[in-house]
């Protein structure tokens, strides 16, 4: 079922909001579905994943099971933990704590452990190398972080995995899930930007500056768009809020969703005193998956969780399917 949402997505990142969000289950289903459609898959991860048992919470985790022909980029030290028979295709020269990243082709079906590069440029090189080995599609096991949303620069589609392990309070999990989903669904602004930290756009004319203060004279005259390169943090938002009066009719544009490192409440404030928030590079949010099972014992009711996430997404005007990990 999830396969139908993959249309037009060449590189997909599955991002878990926390450990045990059900990311690996989602990946396994995707792998199986794509293999049924005779696709050659490439797999890699951001950081280490696919472990038999979670090192932090010690819960049993499903591993990633691949079919014959799948191309995998993973750390050398993790290769022997899998059980595929493999052809070694390339040693990338990129090292991780678990050894150099090696690209192999599965000559049988079997389990693999994924561990990948942690630097975006390296991740891009590996993605390109996987595509170069004839992969129809590349799946990236995404980073787990409350702060960052992985790297839209790397992929053209995202699946967001949420779960009860995120927070014992279902309202918090639902709220943050909707918030992250909303960031991925921000409209794309397609205009020029300078290389500076800030670019003000007024009547099609660009003014760049690395300090916000330098732009105040331009902002005073009223600008339609203010592009912010790099991270947009709570303090960035506070700085903008201090000159909020000047920004009433201004659209704030971040580079991509991963650069918005704002608390939900700060994001709301930012929306309140500006014309809105957009991104230079958009990422398609293909689906949200929910896992009512918590590794810490505070499970949610599975119907309630899914319905509340759906409701929250509707309220946030994010139109994507929500699926229980067990039934993706």
């Amino acid at each position: 079922m999830i396969y139908e949402y993959m249309n037009g997505i060449k590189t997909l990142s599955v991002i878990g909001m926390c450990k045990n969000a059900g990311k690996t289950t989602v990946l396994n289903v995707l792998i199986e579905e794509c293999e049924k459609h005779d696709e050659i898959l490439g797999l890699t991860s951001i950081g280490r994943d696919g472990e038999r048992s979670d090192l932090v919470t010690n819960t049993k985790k499903p591993e990633i099971f691949v079919g014959r022909g799948t191309v995998i980029a993973t750390a050398e030290g993790l290769l022997k933990q899998g059980d595929i028979s493999m052809e070694i295709l390339s040693s990338t020269g990129q090292s991780t704590p678990m050894g150099e990243i090696i690209i192999v082709r599965a000559m049988s079906a079997g389990y693999v452990q994924l561990g990948g590069a942690s630097i975006t440029e390296h991740q891009q090189l590996i993605r390109d190398e996987l595509l170069g080995f004839g992969c129809d599609r590349v799946f990236i096991d995404g980073a787990i972080s409350r702060k960052s949303l992985g790297t839209p620069a790397l992929c053209d589609g995202v699946i967001l995995s949420s779960g009860a392990s995120y927070d014992p309070n279902i309202a918090v999990t639902v709220g943050d899930t909707a918030y992250f989903a909303r960031l991925f669904s921000l409209p794309v602004y397609s205009g020029e930007a300078s290389v500076m930290r800030y670019t003000a756009v007024r009547d099609g004319e660009l003014t760049g500056a690395n300090e916000l203060n330098e732009l105040i004279p331009v902002l005073r005259e009223g600008v339609k768009v203010l592009i912010v390169r790099g991270a947009v943090t709570d303090s960035t938002a506070s700085a903008l809020r201090n000159i909020g009066k000047l920004l009433k009719n201004t659209l704030i544009v971040a580079e991509d969703a991963s650069r918005l490192l704002l608390k939900p409440v700060m994001f709301e404030k930012l929306l309140g005193f500006t014309r809105g928030v957009s991104v230079l590079k958009g990422t398609r949010l293909a689906a949200v998956t929910v896992n009512p099972f918590s590794a810490y014992g505070t499970h949610y009711n599975k119907y309630e969780f899914k319905e509340r996430v759906e409701e929250a997404l509707r309220m946030a005007e994010v139109d994507v399917p929500v699926m229980d990990v067990k039934y993706v």
Partner: peptide, 11 residues
């Protein structure tokens, strides 16, 4: 040697 090491030697 591991498969990766033999790969390097072959290369």
């Amino acid at each position: 040697l591991t498969e990766v090491e033999l790969f390097e030697i072959k290369r």
